[in-house]
Amino acid sequence: MTTVAEFLALSSALTGFSPAELRGTGMVGAYQALVVQQAGAEPLDRLTATVARGGIGPSAFGDGPERELAQAIAQLWYLGTWPGLGGSTAPERDPAFVVSARAYAEGLVWRTFGGHAPSTAAPGHGSWSHPPADPA
């Protein structure tokens, strides 16, 4: 079974964020449990092993289920949503869903430009008149 440290390493490789940054979201345990629940422990173990062996690149996954799971995990971290699995051509795709309000607020998409999810943080009066902070 994929450990928390392995899940963090996998997630870091898929998102480009460091394990410390991912841990800072407070979503690691919830996301790992969700991936195991939705995809199963064995597919997660296979994906973790694939990434640990060769990293991620254009040919790391092919067009199989590992690629779909990798994309689902990246979407989970960036948007706080689970896209469902089953392939775009599968007759019965698992339904997509928003994981939680917290997952939405902690989505990495907001961190990419130094912002916050709408309606989740009080920016202060007149903040709209200033450009976003440089995330670097």
Rank of each mutant, 00 (worst) to 15 (best):
residue 83 P to R: 05
residue 75 Q to H: 12
residue 96 A to I: 03
residue 22 L to F: 12
residue 52 A to E: 10
residue 8 L to I: 10
residue 120 T to Y: 11
residue 62 G to T: 08
residue 44 L to F: 01
residue 20 A to Q: 15
residue 120 T to I: 03
residue 6 E to P: 05
residue 116 H to M: 04
residue 12 S to T: 08
residue 50 T to I: 03
residue 18 S to E: 13
residue 119 S to K: 12
residue 30 A to K: 15
residue 70 A to L: 06
residue 63 D to R: 08
residue 68 E to K: 00
residue 89 T to Y: 00
residue 84 G to P: 01
residue 88 S to V: 14
residue 87 G to A: 05
residue 2 T to R: 02
residue 15 T to Q: 02
residue 97 F to P: 03
residue 48 T to C: 02
residue 54 G to N: 06
residue 74 A to N: 12
residue 30 A to I: 08
residue 7 F to C: 02
residue 118 P to Q: 02
residue 127 S to K: 04
residue 2 T to D: 00
residue 42 E to L: 14
residue 114 G to V: 12
residue 88 S to G: 09
residue 39 A to M: 06
residue 47 L to I: 04
residue 25 T to S: 13
residue 70 A to V: 04
residue 113 F to Y: 15
residue 61 F to Q: 07
residue 13 A to H: 08
residue 27 M to C: 06
residue 33 A to H: 06
residue 78 Y to H: 14
residue 61 F to E: 08
residue 52 A to D: 07
residue 58 P to F: 13
residue 13 A to P: 03
residue 5 A to W: 05
residue 11 S to K: 01
residue 122 A to K: 07
residue 124 G to N: 05
residue 115 G to Y: 05
residue 25 T to G: 13
residue 59 S to Y: 08
residue 17 F to C: 04
residue 61 F to V: 11
residue 62 G to V: 05
residue 107 G to R: 00
residue 67 R to K: 14
residue 10 L to S: 01
residue 95 P to C: 03
residue 70 A to W: 08
residue 16 G to E: 09
residue 110 W to A: 12
residue 134 D to K: 00
residue 130 H to K: 11
residue 130 H to R: 13
residue 7 F to T: 01
residue 14 L to G: 07
residue 62 G to F: 11
residue 118 P to L: 09
residue 110 W to F: 10
residue 30 A to V: 05
residue 96 A to W: 08
residue 57 G to C: 11
residue 5 A to R: 14
residue 86 G to P: 04
residue 120 T to A: 10
residue 82 W to N: 06
residue 28 V to A: 04
residue 105 A to H: 11
residue 135 P to N: 11
residue 8 L to Q: 05
residue 4 V to Y: 02
residue 3 T to G: 04
residue 5 A to F: 10
residue 92 E to A: 10
residue 79 L to P: 00
residue 90 A to G: 15
residue 22 L to N: 09
residue 17 F to P: 02
residue 104 Y to N: 08
residue 90 A to N: 12
residue 23 R to M: 10
residue 104 Y to E: 14
residue 17 F to I: 06
residue 4 V to A: 10
residue 13 A to W: 12
residue 11 S to R: 01
residue 108 L to F: 04
residue 105 A to S: 15
residue 33 A to Q: 14
residue 128 W to L: 14
residue 130 H to I: 09
residue 90 A to I: 01
residue 1 M to W: 03
residue 98 V to R: 10
residue 69 L to T: 01
residue 52 A to I: 09
residue 135 P to W: 09
